[in-house]
């Protein structure tokens, strides 16, 4: 656990809290963009450059742009305090219970970076070993297009579904 990781995690959680509490949705959106960038850096630190690239481009870029575009077409609340601190007790109980249950599992999780964790056996080891055979250096790419290409096919379908759904929602599906 490097201090860098700890600092990044602290930043990400802090910005997430700002996103949560900001009453002005534009402030929240900007905070969310910062949050995405923080995550992207975190992905790099965790040796996931492909995820980092996608997060920076899609998460911080496209999503933020979409939010801003929506906000520019709609109104946003003005006036009053900048942060809202009131949360309903039910939400606190439900979310708190889920969070507490999840935290209780943390000690059982393998330590971060533990090379003996089960996740490094099995499928992952197979992928790393076989990647070369397909003439691809980047194991992530190989898994994406070869070993789990069916997921990627599904992913394309998800994007297409979203496009069509947006058309339908915007009322442009009638042709």
């Amino acid at each position: 656990m490097t201090p860098l990781v700890a600092a990044l995690l602290a930043f990400v959680v802090a910005v997430a809290v700002v996103t949560a509490l900001a009453r002005d949705v534009l402030v929240a959106t900007v905070a969310f963009a910062a949050y995405s960038l923080g995550l992207a850096v975190l992905w790099v630190v965790f040796d996931a450059p492909d995820v980092a690239l996608t997060e920076a481009a899609v998460g911080a870029g496209v999503v933020t742009a979409l939010f801003v575009a929506v906000l520019s077409r709609t109104t946003r609340p003005v006036g009053g305090r900048s942060f809202s601190l009131s949360v309903s007790p039910t939400v606190v109980i439900v979310v708190g219970a889920l969070t507490a249950a999840l935290v209780a599992t943390v000690p059982s999780l393998p330590a971060v970076g533990d090379p003996d964790a089960p996740a490094f056996d099995g499928a992952a080891a197979y992928y790393l070993q076989e990647t070369g055979a397909y003439g691809i250096d980047n194991a992530v790419t190989a898994v994406l297009v070869v070993f789990r290409g069916f997921d990627t096919f599904g992913e394309i379908a998800v994007v297409f579904t979203a496009v069509v759904a947006v058309l339908v929602v915007r009322g442009r599906g009638d042709a």
Binding site: D151, E155, V169, G173
Partner: peptide, 27 residues
Amino acid sequence: FNLYVFLEISGLASYGMVAQADRGAAA
């Protein structure tokens, strides 16, 4: 995990289909 992907395809499709109704409440 593949199941998750298909869950999301069917989910997105159904959200869009529900919104197809004319009434504002549908959105």
